[in-house]
């Protein structure tokens, strides 16, 4: 049996809203007890609509926010950032790529500095070594050497997303959380980035948590699928199970709502319209 990289047990996250002078505060349950297990080298896709708690879950897995209750295990090691500060070794293991490629890069940092920053913080490599590593990573994600000294605004969305992926990989993570990494990109660029992600997964043996609202992308990239609805995991299984035999009502609604771009459904629609 292969190793489990990520495991969560009953992860809960509540937000307390308001609580002004004259108003009682309300508690929002963003994530209500999610449990999952993910093996090395696999891709888990988390699907759901805005506000379903998938991004909150991603932030907990990435150890940005502490869970209100429940356990998070990375590589079998229990993580609790509310009580114990992370060691650099633990920090390094999980990295994240955000949805919006325009907001995720510091506009005042050159690409080279973006890539070297994680090394400066987490390692004591000499400057030359840092630069070599950043440089080879830049080439690995399909950018050119002359991009090293440019600022983020000089790049297109797809290129920025490549840079964000490169930055996430600088620390050799075990697990990469991809929070809607392609939903802000054009179709053709989306294909390039998805290919890149697949290549990198093979090369580095990466484990992905892929958050998305786009079922066609999920169907393409995922090994396992979790469907979230109002903070709960209403469906969780392998890709085949979920797509061929959805159990929950909401999953079926979601599938039905996804636009179909095949000739058969166009024919059917046109026939309906003609009638």
């Amino acid at each position: 049996m292969s190793e489990i990289v990520l495991e969560t047990r009953n992860l809960v996250r509540d937000y307390v809203i308001g609580g002004g002078l004259f108003r009682p505060s309300r508690v929002i349950h963003a994530v209500k007890g999610v449990s999952l297990k993910l093996e090395k080298g696999k891709t888990l896709a988390i699907v759901g609509e805005s506000g379903c708690g998938k991004s909150t879950l991603a932030r907990m897995i990435t150890m940005i926010d502490a869970p209100t209750a429940g356990e998070l295990l990375i590589d079998g090691e229990q993580i609790d950032i509310a009580r114990k500060t992370l060691t650099p070794e633990q920090r390094r293991k999980v990295q994240i790529v955000f949805q919006n490629p325009y907001g995720s890069l510091n506009p005042r940092q050159k690409i080279g500095d973006v890539l070297m920053e994680p090394l400066i913080i987490n390692s004591d490599l000499p400057a030359a070594e840092r630069r070599d590593r950043a440089f080879s990573m830049l080439l690995k994600v399909g950018l050119r050497p002359e991009h090293f000294n440019r600022y983020p605004h000089m790049f297109s969305g797809g290129q920025r997303q490549r840079i964000a992926i490169a930055r996430a990989l600088m620390l050799n993570p075990r697990l990469l959380v991809l929070d809607e990494p392609v939903s802000a990109l054009d179709l053709s660029v989306q294909a390039q980035v998805l290919n890149l992600l697949a290549d990198l997964q093979d090369e580095f043996g990466l484990t992905y948590v892929f958050i998305s609202h786009d079922l066609s992308v999920v169907r393409y990239i995922a090994d396992e699928v979790m469907v979230m609805y109002f903070g709960e995991a209403v469906e969780y299984g392998t890709r085949e199970e979920v797509f061929s035999n959805p159990q929950h009502e909401y999953t079926r609604t979601l599938f039905a709502a996804t636009p179909r771009a095949d000739v058969e459904s166009i024919r059917r629609r046109l026939a309906r319209k003609a009638a």
């Binding site: 053709s188 169907r219 393409y220 771009a261």
Partner: peptide, 18 residues
């Protein structure tokens, strides 16, 4: 190219790009 780049039309494990 656009149609081929749709993930649901993917053949094999690589998406064709433009």
């Amino acid at each position: 190219a656009l149609l081929a780049a749709l993930p649901e039309n993917a053949v094999g494990d690589r998406l064709p790009t433009v």
